[in-house]
Design a protein around this nucleic acid. Structure first.
Length: 826
RNA sequence: GCCGAAGUGGCGGAACUGGCAGACGCGCGCGACUCAAAAUCGCGUUCCUUCGGGAGUGUGGGUUCGAGUCCCACCUUCGGCACCA
């Protein structure tokens, strides 16, 4: 490593070499690493802060999509450290999963080789950014030491009844040959997230986690500081509906449970509709309707989801010949099947109330079914409705409930149903259980053994991990690669020791990332998923940053996971991350999402080489509203690079004390600006306002440049230079360290305290009093900050502009806003 | 259709609780330095203007002495959900 310290006196000796980031950045990175500057240790004497940023997926090169969240997060972690917190700021890699496998297939390299090569490259890139990650705590989800515990958690969930297996229609990508989670099916045409192929349905026996058991609790965000946007997205995703479940009966006596949000309209139910896949359809269909019903069922099943879910599609359906009895009025009503009723929501059966539901109305119109009104619209004349009425009103034609105002008194109806035993208050969610089975190779093997005698048996904990074999045919065949392996799946039953088979599926990678925040605490710990000493000190996560695109996937799963761990007695809290802040997305220069397939990925390496990591870090903070993001543009980096250059020149040429006396007026100006900047930058770091952090520091630099001839070499100048460097340290860690060192200050700048803000010094003793006439600015005067009302008004009325506009008349009103302005109303 | 976010110069974006709109930067223009260029530095840069001033924060209203900011209605863009019973 090059010798880094130059004597401070050489800085004063005149022009030094110019700012060359490529010369200083690697040198400091190596020194910080050698000195273990960013290792984090338990320290009960300091307040802890667990600052977590979402771990990157190992897709290859890091692009600005990765750097955009990291540069500001890193700066904020550094700021908090300078504020005295013991900051844990770890990183790792989400290394399993489908995209890695697809990429490997395309290149003909083993997914493991490909993934770990990528990790090496990404580590290098993250280091060149000058991040303060504690690499000793790095966790990689594809390491056996990691997925051993992923499997262990699976076993715990299984033992606590939160993991179960069921045959279920799943979205299947015929191109990737795999099951897709609902979140991985994109767009109106329901295509595969990865390859764009339209998905089809396939029935497979698969593992699910009972996230729906936590639906209600997941709606509760009290006690955590998460953005409204995420809360809204999650709330919609969970999709809570309140109403009643009511049991109708077929004439044969089969119970037909329906869910309705409008139990008050029960008296208007004139038919029932079952989903075509409903299990009772075959049994209830009468012989003479059989042919037509079966044809409809086949046709509905064959239709793709696109066709079936097209909103503007005509309602279609078939009468199955059977009748049901409406439990509230014993009316005999026909049972139909129709594809607008979904087996995957509610009970797969509905009561149809055509007068008060738009879909039922359209259906009844088409098939000429009765449409009796049971909620009177305002000014209703008793005539048939022209459209479904879904609003409020009084119940009519509803027996004893006639005149009941709904929805206000809906509870009376529900209570009556409950007293009668025909129904009860009920809540239904859109959220479905989390399907985690993947018929893929590159993932965590599911630690379950199938024994002919004992069924599903979890692999004993002391036999974990179930290792993923390297020697498989991982190219897609339509089957799980592990199933085709010659020996891997053959094992013995942990219970009886007789021959048994392993589960050949792997887990959804969202399982890996649901608990990584715990593994960072002690990635090498072998006695459990985490070292309890570390856990007790660090958890929970104090601040979490990452992309909004994970709102309804990762960010729900990890909350669920922690709640499940809490109920199993493993953690003492129900929310993993106390504060969440989302950055927006960086798009390609074409305004489209950055992706390799689009060819619009901007790789940072060449920009680092040209401008340096510091300029790039500053630019990533400066160029956008962090929460918004936007299209990438390389152009503006010039701005932050020039700023760093100016700072370099300023410090290297002027920072040494010369014994010169301060000129009081400019000294006051500089001190005021300095403390205003400290205040602003501190507040902006707290509030994640990264762009104005940089602009404030630029303003201070600009003012220093202006005042340089007056103040160079004075104590206030030295104070300003040192404070500026301290404030630059989180943003541009290398140049700040270099200049700090050049000034002979003690290593390291990153171990110094944040400069103190002194309110008295930030306050101005003079203000610009704005003089308005009818709210329009007409004049400005410099006045003492403590000017009184009468004096301010006198000055305003004395203004030439005001007297011109008054034209000799008396003002109607004169308004004085202390410290700001006088408004003369004419 | 429902839910949410956002609309400010050529561009990215500032503007704390209603009080100087356009900070900071990019780009552009002019100038200095240079044989020249780059770099750097200085000045200018919302629009219109008869040089007095006038208009201006998506549109139209409103509240107010005063509105980018608050209220009402609408338009556009982006994100999410969507035959959810």
């Amino acid at each position: 490593m090059a010798k880094s310290t130059k004597p401070a006196s050489s800085a004063a000796a005149g022009k030094l070499e110019r700012y060359h980031p490529s010369a200083i950045e690697p040198r400091w990175q190596a020194k910080w690493e050698a000195d273990q500057l960013y290792r984090t240790r338990l320290d009960p004497s300091r307040p802890k802060f667990y600052f977590l940023t979402m771990l990157p997926y190992t897709s290859g090169d890091l692009h600005f999509g990765h750097w955009y969240p990291m540069a500001p997060s890193d700066a904020r972690a550094r700021y908090l450290r300078m504020r005295g917190f013991n900051v844990l700021y770890p990183i790792g890699f989400d290394a399993f999963g489908l995209p890695a496998e697809n990429a490997a297939i395309k290149r003909g390299i083993h997914p493991k080789t490909w993934t770990y090569q990528n990790i090496d490259n990404m580590r290098r890139q993250l280091r060149t950014l000058g991040t303060m990650f504690d690499w000793e705590r790095e966790a990689v989800s594809a390491d056996p030491e990691y997925y051993r515990w992923t499997q262990w958690f699976f076993v715990q969930l299984f033992k606590h009844g939160l993991a179960y297996k069921k045959l279920s229609p799943v979205d299947w990508c015929p191109n990737c040959n795999t099951t897709l989670a609902r979140e991985q099916v994109w767009g109106d045409d329901r295509h595969c997230e990865r390859c764009g192929t339209p998905v089809i349905k396939k029935n497979l026996d698969q593992w699910f986690f009972r996230i729906t058991r936590y639906a209600e609790e997941l709606l509760d965000f009290s006690g955590i500081d998460w953005p409204d946007r995420v809360r809204t997205l999650q709330t919609n995703w969970i999709g809570r509906s309140q109403g009643a479940s009511v049991v109708f009966r077929s004439e044969k006596g089969d119970p037909l449970e329906v869910f309705t949000t409008r139990p008050d309209t029960l008296w208007g139910a004139t038919f029932m509709v079952l989903a075509p896949e409903h299990p009772l359809v075959a049994r209830l269909t009468t012989p003479e309707r059989k042919a037509e019903v079966e044809a409809y069922v086949v046709q509905a099943a064959r239709q793709s989801d696109i066709q079936r879910e097209a909103v503007d599609k005509d309602k279609t359906g078939v009468f199955i010949g059977a009748y049901a009895v409406n439990p509230v009025n014993q009316a005999r009503i026909p049972i139909w099947i129709a594809d607008y009723v979904l087996m995957t929501y509610g009970t797969g059966a509905i009561m149809a109330v055509p007068a008060h539901d738009e879909r039922d109305f359209a259906f009844a119109r088409k098939y000429d079914l009765p449409i009796p009104v049971v909620i009177a619209p305002p000014d209703w004349d008793g005539k048939p409705l022209e459209a479904a009425y879904t609003g409020d009103g009084k119940m009519v034609n509803s027996g004893q409930f006639d005149g009941t105002q709904v929805p206000e008194d809906m509870d009376r109806v529900i209570r009556w149903l409950e007293d009668n035993g025909t129904g009860k208050g009920a809540i239904t969610y859109r959220l479905r259980d989390w399907l985690i089975s993947r018929q893929r190779y590159w993932g965590t093997p599911i630690p379950i053994v199938y024994c002919p005698e004992h069924g599903q048996v979890p692999v004993p904990e002391d036999q974990l991990p179930v290792l993923l074999p390297d020697d498989v045919e991982w190219r897609p065949t339509g089957e799980s690669p592990l199933k085709l392996h010659s020996t891997w799946k053959a094992t013995t039953c942990p219970t009886c020791g007789k021959p048994a088979e392993r589960d050949t599926d792997t887990m959804d990678t969202f399982m890996c990332s649901s608990w990584y925040q715990y593994r960072y605490l002690s990635p090498d710990y072998a006695q459990g998923p985490w070292d309890p000493k570390e856990f007790d000190y660090w958890m929970p996560v104090d601040c979490y940053t990452g992309g909004i695109e994970h709102a309804t996937m990762h960010l729900i799963y990890t909350r669920f996971f922690t709640k499940a761990l809490r109920d199993m007695g493993l953690v003492p809290f129900g929310e993993p991350m106390l504060q969440l802040r989302n950055q927006g997305i960086i798009l390609g220069e074409d305004g489209e999402k950055m992706s390799k397939s689009r060819g619009n990925v901007v790789a940072p390496d060449s920009l680092v080489a040209h401008y340096g990591a510091d300029a790039l870090r500053a630019y990533l903070m400066f160029a956008y509203r962090w929460q918004e993001g936007g299209p990438w543009s390389s152009q503006g980096i010039e701005g932050t690079a020039r700023w760093l250059n100016r700072a370099w020149t300023l410090v290297t040429e002027t920072a040494t004390l010369s014994g010169r006396e301060e000129d009081p007026d400019p000294a006051r100006r500089l001190r005021r600006k300095l403390h205003q900047t400290i205040q602003r930058v501190s507040a902006d770091f707290e509030a994640f306002e990264f762009n104005t952090i940089v602009s404030s520091e630029m303003e201070l630099t600009n003012l220093m440049q202006d005042l340089r001839p007056a103040l160079e070499g004075t104590p206030v100048w030295r104070e300003a230079v040192l404070s500026l460097l301290l404030m630059m340290a989180p943003v541009a860690p290398h140049i700040a360290e270099e200049l700090w060192d050049l000034l002979g200050m003690p290593y390291s700048i990153h171990q110094q305290s944040w400069p103190a803000f002194i309110a008295d010094l930030a306050r101005s003793d003079e203000i610009t009093l704005v003089i308005q006439v009818n709210g329009k600015v007409r004049d400005r005067v410099q006045v003492p900050a403590d000017i009184g009302e009468s004096e301010a008004k006198r000055l305003a009325l004395a203004s030439e502009a005001v007297s011109r506009l008054l034209g000799g008349k008396e003002p109607r009103q004169v308004i004085y806003v202390p410290g700001k302005l006088v408004n003369v109303v004419v």
